[in-house]
Simulated assay, not measured.
Amino acid sequence: MNKVWAYAGYQGPVVADAAIQAGLAVEIVRRAGEDKGFVVQKRRWVVERTNVWLTRQRRLARDYERHEHSSETFIHIAMTGLMPRRLA
């Protein structure tokens, strides 16, 4: 496992199994118990920002697809359009 992904808020056997199959180390970012109100969480903004970028695409704003692979394909298409602009 050479990559570490910070994944906000989701945990359990599904995430653990997916991480093992993909060969990734998943770090669950949790909110500290003493935090009150809005507090920026470590690396959580990366996940939330990416979700916002994806939901700007009309096709991904709602779950129209019948099959998972169709949704996954449209996510790849959306990120292919986003990444050159972010890297430039």
Results as ranks from 00 to 15, higher is better:
M1N: 07
N2V: 06
N2A: 09
K3N: 12
V4G: 06
W5V: 14
W5C: 12
W5F: 13
A6W: 02
Y7T: 09
A8K: 04
A8D: 15
Y10T: 00
Q11K: 15
Q11T: 15
Q11R: 15
P13M: 11
V15G: 01
V15H: 00
A18Y: 00
A18F: 00
A18C: 02
A19L: 01
I20K: 15
A22R: 03
L24I: 01
L24E: 01
A25F: 01
I28M: 09
R30S: 05
R31C: 01
G33H: 11
G33C: 05
E34T: 06
E34K: 05
K36Y: 01
K36S: 06
K36N: 03
G37K: 02
G37S: 03
F38I: 10
V39N: 14
V39A: 10
V39W: 05
V39Y: 07
V40T: 12
V40G: 03
K42G: 06
W45Q: 04
W45F: 03
V46E: 15
V46H: 04
V46K: 08
V46C: 09
V46P: 01
R49Q: 04
R49T: 08
R49I: 01
R49M: 07
T50I: 10
T50H: 07
T50Y: 05
N51S: 09
N51H: 09
T55W: 02
Q57G: 08
R58P: 02
R59L: 11
A61R: 15
A61L: 14
R62H: 04
D63E: 12
D63S: 12
E65K: 04
E65D: 15
R66D: 12
H67Y: 11
E68R: 08
H69M: 09
S70I: 14
S70D: 08
H76S: 08
I77E: 10
M79T: 14
M79D: 08
G81P: 07
L82Y: 01
R85F: 01
L87C: 08
L87I: 07
L87S: 11
A88T: 10
